[in-house]
Simulated scan of single mutants.
Amino acid sequence: MVMVALVHGLALFAAMASSINVSGVHVNPAVTFGALLGGRISLVCAVYYWVAQLLGAIVACLLLRLIAGMRPAGFMEASGVGELRCMILKIVLTFGLMYTMYGTAVDPKRGSMGTTIPLALGLIVATNILVGGPFDG
């Protein structure tokens, strides 16, 4: 689980660090939705980001299937963990992601954070995987 979390966190860090000057930190539809709700981006911009994000996810899944013969598994909760508990946990973990995103990338009072932004977001994603991973099946 630690390796999975670290790989995800480092991959997200690299993706955001390489694109922060192009699109900010919009590599996740939830982050784009939060920025839209907070009035930090326009609806048109959010739709463009969502289309790009979803197309990127589709291409990644197709490449995974083509290269490795793998099919991404669906989402389900672990045995013994109810749907309501999983939903509450995912809400709390998403709040942590959005709080970190707003505190480092979106808030105009944040100051100059530079490359700390992708690092902080990569670390919160790794932490979320470590916390929430045991509850997913």
Rank of each mutant, 00 (worst) to 15 (best):
P29Y: 02
L64G: 12
G34F: 02
V44T: 14
Q53W: 06
H26I: 05
G80C: 03
G56L: 09
Q53L: 08
E83C: 06
G69Q: 11
Q53T: 15
F75D: 08
P72C: 15
H26G: 04
Q53D: 03
G74F: 02
L36T: 03
V27W: 00
I58F: 15
C45S: 14
F33P: 00
R71S: 12
S42R: 13
L62M: 13
G34C: 04
V59P: 01
L62S: 08
M70Q: 11
L43F: 14
A52D: 09
R71L: 09
G39S: 13
V44L: 15
A73T: 09
L66I: 11
S42G: 13
A78P: 01
C45D: 12
M70V: 09
G80N: 03
A57H: 07
R65F: 09
G74Q: 05
L55R: 09
R65C: 05
L43N: 06
T32S: 15
A52G: 15
A46D: 02
R40P: 00
L63A: 14
L37Y: 06
P29H: 10
S42A: 11
I41C: 06
I67M: 05
R65G: 08
L64W: 10
R71C: 05
R40E: 10
E77H: 11
A52S: 07
A78T: 10
F75K: 08
G56K: 12
R40I: 02
L63V: 15
L62F: 07
R40G: 04
V59I: 15
A73S: 07
L36V: 01
A68S: 07
N28S: 01
V81M: 03
G39D: 08
Q53C: 08
C61M: 13
L37H: 06
Y49Q: 11
W50H: 12
V27I: 15
G82R: 04
F33I: 05
G38V: 05
W50I: 12
I67S: 08
A46H: 01
I67D: 10
E77A: 05
A30P: 00
Y49M: 07
A73R: 14
A35E: 07
